[in-house]
Each structure stands twice: as C-alpha cells, then as structure tokens.
C-alpha cells in the first residue's frame, strides 16, 4: 500500500531578492512498512523534504498524499491534527521538555488528542517500557543519559500510534555506541511493521535502512532499494 506519495513536489523559498529552489519536481512513493534513509549533503533539500513530510511546511507546488489524505490541501489546524495522529517525530537533540518527567514528556501528543489522564499515563508507560525505560518513568531529562533521552523521544513519537516515524539525524548528538543502540530500536520497530524515515548524512546510519534515497540540489539522484 502506498503510504506516502509525492507528485511533482516543489518548494521554493524567497530569500531577499533570490529565489531558492529547495526541492524541484520530486516524485516519490513510500510503501507501508518501509525503512528509508534520506541522504545528501547540506543544502541538498533533505531537511526541506523532512519538513514537508512532517507537515510542518506546505509545498509551493505539487501534491503530497499521506495515508490517503491529500495533505497539500489542508489548513494549519488540519495539519496540526495530522502531525498529532499520523506522524511521530524524533529530533537530533531529543527536544524533551526540561524539568518534566519522562512520562509527562511522552504524554504531550496525547494531551493534544484530548485523551484523559489515566489513559495517557498507561499509554506513556507502555511505550517507555517498549524502548526499555521501564525503571526511568519519573526521571527528568537531566537525570537521563543522551541515549536514554533519545529513547524517551522515540517513545513520545510512538505514543499516538503514528503511521510513520520521521527521525531527523537521530544519532547526531550521540556517540557511536549509543547511536547503534538507538538504531537497533528503530530496527525492532520496523520489524514490528512501523514505517520509518530517517534523514542523515552518515553513511553508517543510512546503512541500517532498507532503502536509501540520495538528494542533491533539490532532486533525487539515487534511489537504492536493497530489497
């Protein structure tokens, strides 16, 4: 099943007098259950693609279909809802709220879905358990290691059962060993059927993925499906 479909997608920024074409007429289809790495040097358009896939930004032209929703036609509120229900974000520097426990951090997406306190807590505990943080429920970010923080962030990305997890340089702030641990979790998640898209410039990380898409100057120059 086509989970993500980009038809002739372009994104142009106006920076002063200059028009910068960050993405040029990109066509891309990602199936349900894939594990995709998006690579490319800085300025290649991979961050722009990530923002568009994550519904944080709207394309200039073209069409974006996510899980049968024509996202490119939605307004800000509808996009917020899509981000809340269908997308799980994992960021390079974790983006956990300071002075807030692991459980409370994981609960945030559920708050915006209007789920009650009890259910939130049980779901958050469930996902923290899944990433191996059973004994860290009430720890705050400053009491957790980098790897543990990123695992809290992954639990947060998963808590609302999204159709896709978008990870932007998820190992960028971690040492190689913990980075590998985090990638192992992504593997396990993918094996259980969750679609994962990782943006990275590290070839080692991309190596974990089953499909590697390489961007340069706003266009796909290589789409290497290992399967």
């Amino acid at each position: 099943m086509d989970l993500i479909k980009l038809n002739n997608l372009s994104k142009t920024y106006q920076i002063g007098q200059n028009k910068v074409e960050a993405l040029k007429n990109v066509d891309l289809t990602i199936q349900n259950g894939e594990f995709v790495a998006i690579m490319g040097p800085s300025g290649s358009g991979k961050s722009t693609l990530m923002n568009l896939l994550g519904c944080l930004d709207k394309p200039s032209t073209g069409e974006y279909i996510l899980d049968k929703n024509i996202v490119s036609k939605l307004d800000n509120n509808e996009l917020a809802e899509i981000r809340n229900k269908k997308i799980g974000f994992v960021f390079q520097n974790f983006n956990l709220l300071a002075r807030t426990t692991a459980i409370e951090n994981v609960e945030i997406p559920l708050i915006y879905s209007g789920i009650n306190y009890k259910e939130r807590e049980s779901k958050a505990k469930n996902k923290l358990d899944l990433v191996g943080l059973r004994d860290r429920f009430n720890h705050k970010p400053n009491q957790l290691s980098g790897g543990q923080q990123q695992r809290v962030a992954i639990a947060r990305a998963l808590v609302n059962e999204p159709v896709v997890v978008l990870a932007d340089e998820p190992t960028g702030a971690l040492d190689t060993k913990t980075g590998e641990e985090v990638m192992t979790i992504f593997h396990e998640l993918n094996n259980s059927g969750i679609t994962i898209i990782i943006v990275t410039h590290e070839i080692d990380i991309a190596f974990h993925a089953k499909r590697v898409i390489t961007f340069r100057d706003g266009v796909i120059i290589e789409d290497n499906n290992k399967i």
Binding site: L56, A80, F89, N95
Partner: peptide, 12 residues
Amino acid sequence: GLRMALGAKRKD
C-alpha cells in the same frame, strides 16, 4: 515549536 510539531494547534 515542539508542542506544535507534536500536534498543538495555534489556538492551543
């Protein structure tokens, strides 16, 4: 920004 990414609407 984070809250918005996680699904907070402008009115939230």
